[in-house]
């Protein structure tokens, strides 16, 4: 909201708006946690949203997960071949897919598919006054629209991440099997050999963070959409850009923290 005249800015127009945006987003996020525990609870709508989110992202995640598993294995082989260490491939890929590729690929695809559609849907509800219409009929739109979507995303994105990891490992297995004729059991024994409990927990935590980010950013951008159909497009677009940026930031921070725990 550009309320101010030039000359009235605290720092400058851009920076002022940036800090106003940050504080708005912060308030939006804290409102989520406040409303989360207050009745009524829209369980049915949350389940609907789980299906909505899951089914939207599933096809693309299947394809991408498989291809990335396959291609990464293929591309990693030459550098291991130099040392005659291609038998390490399964365990290498196991770590790579579980620790990094699975959560990242899932969340980036979901940011594109799910985040943008939440942004567009809520944005168009906002500009056509459907959100106001809920409010005047004594329905809390924040609970009904935002809380349900964020919860659904918190459930669905970790499940999708797990699914993506499995599909990615299958892709990797197909490549290893073609090149070295490694059997299914042998491959997965190798893949799981160096995966620890901490790795699994880390991936879960990451995917929870990513899922939360995707949904809350989409909802925030949609809820604050302005000025007609252009505003809706902008909300969808900004939802994707901002959530991808935050996902990378979170990835970096979580990896730092986990490394610190690992070697402490």
């Amino acid at each position: 909201m550009n309320d101010k005249k030039p000359g009235k800015y605290v720092i400058s127009r851009g920076l002022d708006q940036f800090f106003i945006g940050v504080s708005d987003a912060y308030r939006f996020t804290t409102r989520f946690f406040k409303e989360l525990f207050k009745p009524p609870f829209y369980f049915r709508e949350t389940v609907n949203q789980c299906f909505e989110i899951g089914l939207k992202a599933l096809p693309l995640i299947s394809v991408t997960g498989f291809i990335i598993g396959l291609v990464f294995t293929k591309q990693s082989r030459p550098s291991l071949e130099d040392f005659g260490a291609t038998s390490w491939l399964p365990s290498l890929m196991g770590i790579a897919i579980l620790r990094a590729l699975g959560p990242l690929v899932t969340s980036l695809i979901s940011a594109g598919k799910v985040g943008s559609s939440i942004g567009a849907e809520l944005g168009s509800m906002k500009v056509t006054e459907q959100i106001d219409a809920m409010e005047v009929s004594a329905i809390n739109p924040f609970k009904y629209l935002v809380v349900t979507r964020v919860l659904a995303s918190l459930v669905t994105i970790p499940l999708l991440t797990f699914y993506c990891i499995v599909v990615g490992l299958l892709g990797s297995y197909v490549n290893v099997n073609m090149e070295e004729a490694t059997g299914f059991i042998a491959y997965f024994k190798g893949a799981f050999s160096s995966i620890g409990f901490l790795d699994i927990i880390t991936s879960l935590v990451k995917s929870l963070f990513f899922g939360f980010t995707i949904a809350i950013v989409g909802c925030y951008k949609g809820y604050n959409a302005t000025s007609g159909t252009r505003g809706v497009g902008r909300a969808a677009n900004q939802a994707v850009v901002l959530s991808m940026f935050l996902i990378f930031l979170e990835e970096m921070l979580i990896v730092q923290v986990v490394n610190w725990i690992r070697y402490f």
């Binding site: 849907e121 168009s124 056509t128 459907q130 106001d132 219409a133 005047v136 009929s137 004594a138 329905i139």
Partner: peptide, 27 residues
């Protein structure tokens, strides 16, 4: 207090019946 919006503000993801039943069942 009933509020009828300038552009109707019907919920486009719901059909006409659901548009009307929604405020009832929620309240």
């Amino acid at each position: 207090v009933g509020f009828s919006f300038q552009n109707s503000a019907l919920y486009d993801s719901m059909n006409v019946f659901q548009n009307l039943s929604f405020p009832l069942t929620m309240n």
